[in-house]
Design a protein around this nucleic acid. Structure first.
Length: 586
RNA sequence: GCCCCCGUAGCUCAGCUGGAUAGAGCAUCCGCCUCCUAAGCGGAAGGUCACACGUUCGAAUCGUGUCGGGGGCGCCA
């Protein structure tokens, strides 16, 4: 609809340009927007005000000329000039009525478009280290990333969803070692568990599996394990040095094969748990991309070599540094530690280089806001490698705070007292969680009210929207019981029987849906969709209360049923994009 | 020390990238079921858009500064 109006203005602009009122090369893209106030019609354009200067005439005069030049159209019923020079367009009833068969015919496709023109976009999200279960912070990134990906796909991008698995590096060694130490405890060894180890219960579970299936095969005496290892922090030592020494000891005592086995058991168990968790959250990936694979393929070394060759690497204090300050970063960054290990950042450089080399037109990273300091250095690296850093978009998701009974739920990763995504899902359900997570802009701190998410009332936006969908279904069931036929094809002519204000209000909201999808997708703003759905549900509930649908007048009845079918379809499409179910009854 | 986010109704937030009289939902009052799910609807009341400059026809929106709140970073990932 918006496009149709835009076209009309474009034609008028060409007309007045050929009349010499404005220079031909000054014809802009017509800007129109939804009128905020229905007093001002459906769409408004400020084009006359924008062009007033170049046309050297008063905005209102120019507006008048433009209106005269507008071609006839069945879509528009009235055009007015108002205020300082706005041109207001009123849509015809026919234009609104015509929306209904279109929505019903398009079905699942209503609201989809091809603005993306098949451009390839990669969306990487969650990518939490497989060192433990996902928590509620990851949950927000998961919900957000998934919806952004779905939205982009809905507007015609070819989307590739990816999870970057940090299956290499020190954190994973700490995980493997933690599992092994817990296992030794199960073998009745006297172990002083390291301050920097992973202490969650899930480590015990993995250790128990190891013990159950392999007996004492991995056992070594505690003395052997700790002999000569520098003291841990509680004993006056350094916890980092302590854990690193324990890792080395584990590797030596177990040998390559056995160490690898324990390591992989930990990794795979947790990764499987994460996959399963996300799956139950309605989130699927096209690819799980292994960090280890880029290390092993030599891509990391290749990337570093390229940086070195172009003179962006130097050595200092035994470590290799990338001179990211040349590209606007605030300080240079280590890519290889003095012990020869490449850093996480080095992998990241290689990974992002690989992303661009895979030919994506756009690469989107969804990160926790705590990684924001990371953005400049990754972009710096891409630039240093000769790539265009603007192809990478990093979306930072702020943390979510949980509230229960008005109190903030205290969480801290260190003490292990974080709430897992799985717990959240079990408490409020996947639908409510998905919906609540995307109600706010990503860069906004999110207050997640657990009680509200669980409540079955109109206060709860997800129930409110779902209920509207269920209500339509319920009406249709009633219709079926009364043997009322709801043949979609039967007589579009009845649509003119829709004359109530409530009906036009709904049609107006329905007509906005494709615009909402587009804006939400292009701006990566899922919250626009959740807000929209609430509005549409509200329009429907209001209509429901004001009018009976299954009336005796078959024409009116038929038209109303079609209207609410269109509402149902649109609610369903919108909920679907948010990853929320559209139940047929509540 | 540096960086990021946020200050809009009592509370939680929108405000479509500069437009017309700043909007929702809670909460508060007042109403609505012999009727398709009251898991719903209507109405009232409620704001110096933190503050100050600046940019221009026009600012909640853009820029600078001040104040206030939240979070992060300082060879860990």
């Amino acid at each position: 609809m918006k496009q149709q109006i835009q076209q009309l203005i474009s034609q008028a602009l060409v007309q007045i340009a050929s009349d010499g009122l404005i220079p031909k090369d000054a014809i802009p893209e017509p800007i129109i927007e939804r009128a905020r106030d229905s007093q001002h019609g459906d769409f408004a354009s400020n084009i006359a005000m924008v062009l007033a200067k170049v046309a050297r005439s008063k905005p209102r005069d120019l507006a008048e000329k433009l209106v005269m030049a507008l071609p006839e159209s069945a879509v528009v019923s009235k055009v007015e000039i108002a205020g300082p020079g706005f041109i207001n367009f009123y849509l015809s009833s026919d234009a609104y009525h015509a929306l209904i068969p279109r929505i019903i015919t398009d079905g699942h496709g209503f609201g989809r478009s091809d603005i993306g023109a098949g451009k390839r976009v990669q969306v990487e999200f969650v990518s939490a280290n497989p060192t433990g279960p996902l928590h509620v912070g990851h949950g927000r990134g998961a919900a957000y990333g998934a919806v952004v990906a779905d939205l982009l796909q809905a507007v015609g991008f070819e989307v590739h969803r990816e999870y970057y698995v940090n299956d290499a590096g020190r954190q994973m060694d700490i995980l493997g070692t933690s599992v092994w130490l817990r296992y030794l405890e199960l073998c009745d060894e006297e172990i002083k568990f390291p301050a920097n180890g992973y202490k969650g219960d899930y480590i015990w579970d993995i250790a128990a599996t190891l013990h159950r299936e392999n007996g004492e095969q991995y056992q070594h005496a505690a003395d052997e394990v700790f002999q000569g290892v520098p003291a841990d922090e509680p004993d006056g030592g350094d916890k980092e040095i302590h854990i690193d020494a324990l890792i080395e000891r584990a590797k030596r005592l177990l040998g390559d094969n056995r160490y690898r086995f324990v390591f992989e058991l930990g990794l795979n168990t947790i990764l499987e748990d994460i996959r399963d968790d996300l799956e139950l959250f309605g989130i699927r990936y096209d690819e799980w991309y292994s960090e280890r694979s880029i290390t092993e393929s030599g891509a990391v070394n290749k990337a570093l070599e390229r940086l070195r060759a172009s003179g962006h690497i130097y050595e200092k204090e035994g470590a290799l540094w990338f001179r990211s300050t040349d590209f606007g970063d605030e300080k240079d960054r280590v890519v290889e530690r003095d012990n020869g290990q490449t850093t996480y950042f080095a992998s990241d450089i290689a990974y992002h280089m690989d992303k661009l080399e895979r030919g994506f037109d756009r690469v989107i990273d969804v990160w926790g806001a705590d990684h924001h300091g990371y953005v400049p250095r990754v972009k710096a690296a891409l630039q240093a490698l000769g790539a265009d850093p603007s192809r990478l978009d990093v979306l930072l998701v702020q943390f979510a705070n949980l509230y229960r009974a008005g109190e903030k739920v205290q969480m801290s990763t260190r003490s292990g007292s974080f709430v897992t995504l799985r717990e959240l899902r079990k408490e409020v359900g996947a639908d409510a969680a998905r919906f609540f997570y995307v109600m706010r802009k990503c860069e906004q701190h999110l207050d997640f009210d657990l009680d509200l998410a669980k409540s079955q009332s109109s206060d709860n936006p997800v129930y409110y929207v779902q209920y509207a969908h269920a209500r339509v279904c319920s009406v249709l069931r009633q219709a079926a019981e009364k043997q009322i036929s709801v043949e979609i094809s039967a007589g579009d002519s009845n649509l003119e029987r829709l004359t109530e204000e409530h009906e036009f209000q709904i049609l107006k909201t329905l007509s906005r849906y494709p615009e909402v999808v587009e804006v939400a997708a292009l701006n990566e703003e899922p919250h626009q969709m959740s807000h929209y759905l609430r509005e549409l549900a509200n329009d429907f509930h209001t209509y429901y209360n004001a009018h009976q649908f299954l009336v005796d007048d078959a024409g009116v009845r038929d038209a109303r049923i079609k209207l609410i079918l269109a509402v149902r379809q649109t609610l369903k499409n919108g909920l679907n994009l948010l990853g929320v179910s559209a139940p047929e009854s509540m």
